[in-house]
């Protein structure tokens, strides 16, 4: 297997946080963290595999022209609203949503739409709201948080489009072209 530069960065971060964990919590904390990471990996792998396949399949299904018309730079507020709605209903964890973001990026969605999508999925994703927030935080709190967060993905998308125009922050070229 080829070890890339980015793999080395992740290795270094894991080693540094491991040392910090050992320094603050001793062998017990390190052992607990190892068990947690192992369990998490087993839990996540079947979902990640499905997420990657969904990313690949969606690329075959979506029509590039349609995506860039609906979610491209010229798509305006309608594009951002569509991206927000899509993010809200995307089920599953980051292992399913990010392969999908990648697929939309390749298909021609612009930075504003992609970021509105990620923000909506993260902030007001219905899946997590129902599965996690409702049972833990109660209905009153969940409704309040949902309502105040509803307009935020649009704001993030607008800020992203503005940043791309006035600052050096940009998406790199679409890979694999």
């Amino acid at each position: 297997m080829k070890v890339s530069k980015s793999d080395c960065v992740f290795g270094a971060i894991a080693a540094a946080s491991g040392l910090l964990c050992f320094w603050l919590g001793g062998v017990g904390a390190v052992r607990a963290a190892l068990g947690h990471a192992g369990g998490l990996l087993i839990l996540v792998l079947p979902q990640l595999a499905a997420g990657l396949l969904i990313g690949g399949l969606v690329q075959e299904l979506v029509d590039r022209e349609k995506v860039s018309r609906l979610l491209g730079t010229q798509s305006g507020l309608v594009g951002l609203s569509l991206a927000t709605a899509a993010g809200m209903v995307t089920p599953g964890g980051p292992f399913t949503s990010f392969p999908l973001v990648y697929a939309l990026w390749i298909a021609g969605a612009d930075a504003g739409a992609l970021i509105a999508y990620v923000a909506a999925w993260a902030l007001i994703g219905l899946n997590r709201l129902i599965v996690w927030e409702l049972p833990f935080m109660g209905a009153d709190f969940t409704v309040l948080r949902f309502v105040v967060c509803l307009p935020l993905p649009l704001i993030a998308g607008l800020i992203a489009r503005w940043l791309v125009q006035v600052t050096p922050l940009k998406l790199r070229e679409v890979p694999g072209e």
Partner: peptide
């Protein structure tokens, strides 16, 4: 589609376990 999934998966094979390890260490610390 399968080819896309495999190439993405291969890129994540080493990174993902390392990242989860780092997150778990931080959660303890």
């Amino acid at each position: 589609s399968g080819g896309f999934a495999v190439s993405q998966g291969r890129a994540l094979a080493l990174r993902l376990p390392l990242a989860m390890l780092a997150a778990s260490f931080l959660a303890q610390a």
